[in-house]
Amino acid sequence: MPDITHGARCWTVGEGSNLLDALNGAGLNVPYSCRAGSCHACLVRCLEGEPQDARPDALERGRRMQGWRLACQCRVTEDLRVAVFDPEREGLPARVEALDWLGEEILRLRLMPERPLRYRAGQHVLLWSDGGVARPYSLASLPVEEAWLEFHLDCSRPGAFSKAARELTIGDSLRLGPLHGGALRYEPEWQGRPLLLLAAGTGLAPLWSVLREALRQGHTGPIRLLHFCRGESYLRAPLEHLAGLYANLSVELIDRHQMQHRLQSLRIASRQEFALVCGSGAFVDDCAKRLFLAGISRGQILSDVFVARDTGA
Rank of each mutant, 00 (worst) to 15 (best):
P194H: 09
G132K: 02
G218D: 07
L266F: 11
R271V: 12
G27C: 08
P51F: 00
F228I: 04
I296N: 03
H40G: 01
C155D: 05
A147Q: 14
R256Y: 08
E97M: 13
D172R: 01
E187H: 13
T12H: 10
G182R: 06
R185F: 01
D154I: 02
V76R: 05
G312I: 05
S17H: 04
S250L: 07
A94D: 07
F228Q: 02
L196V: 10
C34P: 07
E15T: 00
T169K: 13
C74N: 06
D100S: 13
H241W: 08
A183H: 12
V277Q: 08
H40C: 07
P178D: 09
G181T: 10
R120I: 11
P93Q: 10
G103S: 02
C42I: 04
E88Q: 15
V277Y: 01
V13R: 06
R157M: 09
S209D: 08
S233G: 15
V76K: 00
Q258G: 09
V44S: 02
L249T: 08
N24W: 10
D310Q: 14
G62C: 00
Q300I: 11
E167S: 14
E213H: 15
E60L: 06
A200L: 10
R175G: 02
A275D: 11
A160M: 01
H227W: 07
L249G: 04
L235P: 03
L197H: 01
R63T: 05
E50Y: 10
P93V: 08
Q66V: 00
R290E: 02
F85Q: 00
M259G: 04
D100V: 14
L174I: 09
R185S: 09
I223H: 06
N18G: 14
L174Y: 12
E213L: 07
R9A: 14
E60Y: 01
A183W: 06
Q272T: 07
D154L: 02
G7D: 02
Q73I: 02
L266P: 08
R115C: 07
R95E: 14
L215E: 15
L23V: 10
A294E: 11
Q123M: 08
G14L: 10
C10Y: 01
L197V: 11
D86R: 12
R45A: 01
L198A: 03
P143I: 01
P51G: 08
G312M: 09
I4R: 03
Q260A: 14
L293C: 08
L19W: 15
A140K: 11
V82F: 03
E252P: 01
G203D: 07
W11P: 03
I170T: 12
K163G: 02
L215Y: 09
V84I: 15
E145I: 15
D79M: 05
L153M: 12
L174E: 04
P2T: 11
R230V: 05
A247E: 15
L249N: 01
V84M: 13
L149Q: 02
V307P: 00
W148Q: 06
M259H: 08
H261W: 12
C72V: 05
E150L: 05
S297I: 09
H124G: 06
